[in-house]
Simulated assay, not measured.
Amino acid sequence: MSKEIIKNSIWKQNAGLVQVLGMCPVLVVSSNIVNGVSLGLATSLVMLVSGAAIAAIRQFVPNELRSPIFILIIAALVTVVDLMFNAYAHGLYVVLGIFIPLITTNCIVLARAEAFASRNSVWDSALDGFFMGIGLTMVLAVLGGMRELVGKGTLLSGIDLVFGPAAKAWTIYIIPADMHYQFLLAILPPGAFIGLGLLIAGKTAMDKKAEAKAQRARLPVAVATH
């Protein structure tokens, strides 16, 4: 059951590539790897704890009050995450801005609360919430890396906002900094749409290839039985 939940969360029903939910943070925050991964991990933490909490109290929540109570739980957790960002990574907190509080209204978080946590055990709900968030984080990381690499010629720019000024040396310059390279299309919103479209197309192609391979593997068995 756990393996199926993980596979389903990360690949089969990936929030960014299959369900296409939470597009505001995916398209806006994915300008580089650091921003995307930071918001993705924050979302994963909220989904893990909110999933477990909602599953624990689901039997005591009247149907008429489900949505307000679920949103209240999620909002409380997001407030904690928001304060933690402000206290321990203030530079990143300023960069991410309104998108940390907006986790409260993110379609992914509320959708999993309604569709999964309200119907399953605490452990399964926590696992589903966390890996749904990790699936989104992976999309944000890859999309952020693509946009940052094409747009600025770097990787891990802004890492010092998380780990302090000393981490500025961790930035990887694929194109030398003294060239002042910049490709605005990749950095601006159109680049996010193009990059996400390429990722969705790539996943679809991989799924079709895997399905065709599975069908070829089943064919000799079918022929043998006849």
Results as ranks from 00 to 15, higher is better:
Ala126Thr: 06
Ile108Phe: 10
Leu110Cys: 01
Glu114Leu: 10
Trp123Gly: 09
Leu110Gly: 03
Ile108His: 05
Ile98Pro: 00
Gly129Ile: 02
Trp123Met: 13
Leu96Phe: 10
Asn120Arg: 10
Ala115Phe: 06
Tyr93Lys: 14
His90Val: 05
Phe116Thr: 05
Arg119Pro: 00
Ile103Ser: 10
Asn120His: 15
Ala126Ser: 06
Gly97Trp: 06
Glu114Ser: 13
His90Arg: 11
Pro101Asp: 10
Leu127Ile: 12
Leu127His: 04
Arg119Ile: 00
Val109Ile: 14
Thr104Ile: 15
Asn120Gly: 02
Ile108Arg: 03
Leu92Asn: 09
Ile100Met: 09
Tyr93Val: 00
Phe116His: 11
Arg112Cys: 02
Ala113Asn: 12
Gly97Glu: 01
Ile103Thr: 13
Val122Tyr: 12
Leu127Trp: 03
Gly91Asp: 14
Leu110Pro: 03
Thr104Glu: 11
Thr105Val: 14
Leu92His: 11
Ile103Leu: 15
Phe131Val: 03
Trp123Asp: 11
Leu102Val: 09
Gly91Ile: 04
Ile100Tyr: 10
Leu102Ala: 14
Asp124Gly: 05
Gly91Met: 05
Ile98His: 01
Gly129Arg: 04
Met132Phe: 11
Ala115Val: 06
Ala113Pro: 01
Met132Glu: 07
Trp123Glu: 14
Glu114Pro: 01
Asp128Pro: 00
Thr104Met: 11
Ile100Trp: 12
Gly129Met: 04
Arg119Gln: 14
His90Thr: 13
Cys107Gly: 13
Ala126Met: 07
Val95Asp: 02
Pro101Val: 09
Phe99Trp: 15
Ala111Trp: 07
Met132Gln: 12
Arg112Lys: 13
Phe116Ser: 04
Leu127Gly: 03
Ser125Cys: 06
Leu96Asp: 07
His90Cys: 02
Ala117Thr: 04
Val109Leu: 04
Leu110Phe: 15
Val122Trp: 13
Val122Leu: 14
Ser118His: 08
Leu110Ala: 09
Pro101Tyr: 12
Ile103Trp: 10
Val95Leu: 11
Ile103His: 10
Gly129Asp: 07
Pro101Arg: 10
Ala89Gly: 05
Tyr93Met: 07
Tyr93Thr: 08
Trp123Ser: 14
Gly97Lys: 07
Ala111Asp: 08
Gly97His: 05
Ala126Trp: 07
Phe131His: 08
Met132Tyr: 05
Ser118Asn: 14
Ala113Ile: 00
Met132Pro: 00
Val109Phe: 03
Ser118Val: 01
Ala113Met: 14
Ile103Gln: 13
Ile108Gly: 05
Ile100Phe: 11
Ala115His: 06
Phe130Gly: 02
Leu96Asn: 06
